[in-house]
C-alpha cells in the first residue's frame, strides 16, 4: 500500500510512525551520548561554571587508574561466572518444566524474582545473608554458613553471584521454554524412531536447534552483568572494604563522589567500547553456530 504513494507521502507516514520515538531516542540517548564524549576531553567537576580542555589527559588517567582496572577484572570474573550459571540453571529449569504437565505454578514461581527491583532484592538478601543464613549455620553447626558471607571479600562476591542467578534465571527460563516449545516435534519423533534416547536427543537435536535462544540469553545476561549496579549497591555497597565494587560503581563514584567527572565519563566510554566489542563478538559467533532443522 505504501509503495503506491510518492516519496513525500512515504516519508510522511514514516515520520508519523517513527517520528516520536526517534525524537525521544535522539534527545535522551544520542545527544547525551555525544555530549558525554565531549565532556571526557574536559576537566569539569560536575558543577563548576568553568572548565578547560585537557585533550586526552582523562584517557591517560583511565589507563593508569589501578582501581578501575582491578574492578574491571573483577567484573569480568563476575560476568563469566554469572553468565554460565544463569544459563545452565535457566536451561535445566526450562527443560524440566517442559517435560511435565501443569507446571504453570513453577514457571510463575521461578519468574517471580525478576519482578522485584534490584534495590529491594538486595536489601532482602542482605537480611538473609546477615541473619537468616548465619542463624541456620549456627543451629546446624555448619561453619561455612555460621558467619555472614557479606563480611568476607571472596564470599561476598559469591553472594552477589548467587542473587544475580536467582534473579535472572527465571527470566532466561521463559526464553528457553519458548525455544524448547519451538523444537519441531517431527524431528524429535524421527530421532526417536532412529533410536536416539533422551540424552542423545538433547545433545544432537534439541541443543543445536536452540542456538538462537542461547544467543539471546547469553547476550542479555552478558549485558546485564557488565552493567550491574543496583544489586551491587544495595547488597554489598561495594564492601567489605571495596572488594566487591563492580566497574559501574567505580565509575559512578569517580564521577560523583571523587568529583572527577571527566575521568569518570572517560571510564564509562572505555567500558562502553569493551562491552560493545564483547557482545558484538558473541552475537557474531552464535549466529554462525545456528543451524536449520
Amino acid at each position: 500500500m505504501i509503495a503506491e504513494k510518492g516519496k513525500l507521502a512515504r516519508l510522511r507516514s514514516r515520520l508519523i510512525f517513527t517520528g516520536p520515538t526517534l525524537f525521544i531516542f535522539f534527545t535522551v540517548m544520542i545527544v547525551p551520548f555525544f555530549y558525554g564524549i565531549y565532556l571526557t576531553f574536559t576537566d569539569w567537576d560536575g558543577i563548576s561554571t568553568r572548565y578547560s580542555f585537557v585533550r586526552f589527559d582523562n584517557y591517560a588517567t583511565v589507563m593508569r587508574d589501578g582501581v578501575f582496572w582491578k574492578s574491571f577484572i573483577l567484573t569480568l570474573k563476575y560476568v563469566a561466572v554469572s553468565v554460565v550459571l544463569i544459563n545452565v540453571v535457566a536451561f535445566f529449569l526450562a527443560y524440566a518444566l517442559t517435560r511435565r504437565k501443569r507446571s504453570n505454578l513453577y514457571r510463575t514461581g521461578f519468574f517471580l524474582p525478576n519482578l522485584v527491583g534490584g534495590i529491594i532484592l538486595g536489601l532482602i538478601w542482605q537480611f538473609v545473608f546477615n541473619y537468616v543464613v548465619v542463624n541456620i549455620g549456627r543451629e546446624l553447626g555448619i561453619p561455612l554458613l555460621a558467619h555472614s558471607w557479606l563480611a568476607d571479600p571472596a564470599q561476598a562476591m559469591w553472594a552477589l553471584v548467587a542473587v544475580t542467578v536467582w534473579q535472572y534465571a527465571g527470566y532466561m527460563m521463559v526464553i528457553y521454554i519458548a525455544g524448547l516449545m519451538n523444537v519441531p516435534s517431527d524431528v524429535l519423533e524421527a530421532a526417536s524412531i532412529d533410536g536416539a534416547t533422551g540424552w542423545r536427543q538433547l545433545r544432537s537435536i534439541v541443543l543445536p536447534l536452540m542456538i538462537p535462544s542461547f544467543s539471546v540469553c547469553v547476550f542479555l545476561s552478558l549485558q546485564r552483568g557488565f552493567l550491574a549496579y543496583d544489586l551491587n549497591l544495595s547488597l554489598t555497597q561495594g564492601g567489605p572494604f571495596k572488594s566487591t565494587e563492580l566497574v559501574s560503581m567505580v565509575i559512578y563514584n569517580k564521577a560523583f563522589l571523587s568529583r572527577e567527572y571527566g575521568v569518570g565519563q572517560a571510564e564509562a566510554f572505555v567500558l562502553f567500547l569493551i562491552v560493545a566489542a564483547i557482545t558484538l563478538l558473541q552475537v557474531y559467533f552464535s549466529k554462525k553456530m545456528e543451524v536449520e532443522a
Binding site: Q126, N130, V134, H147, S148, L150, A151, G239, P240
Partner: peptide, 8 residues
C-alpha cells in the same frame, strides 16, 4: 568481635 563487619 567475632564478625566485626556484619552489622548494619
Amino acid at each position: 568481635k567475632k564478625s566485626p563487619l556484619t552489622a548494619t
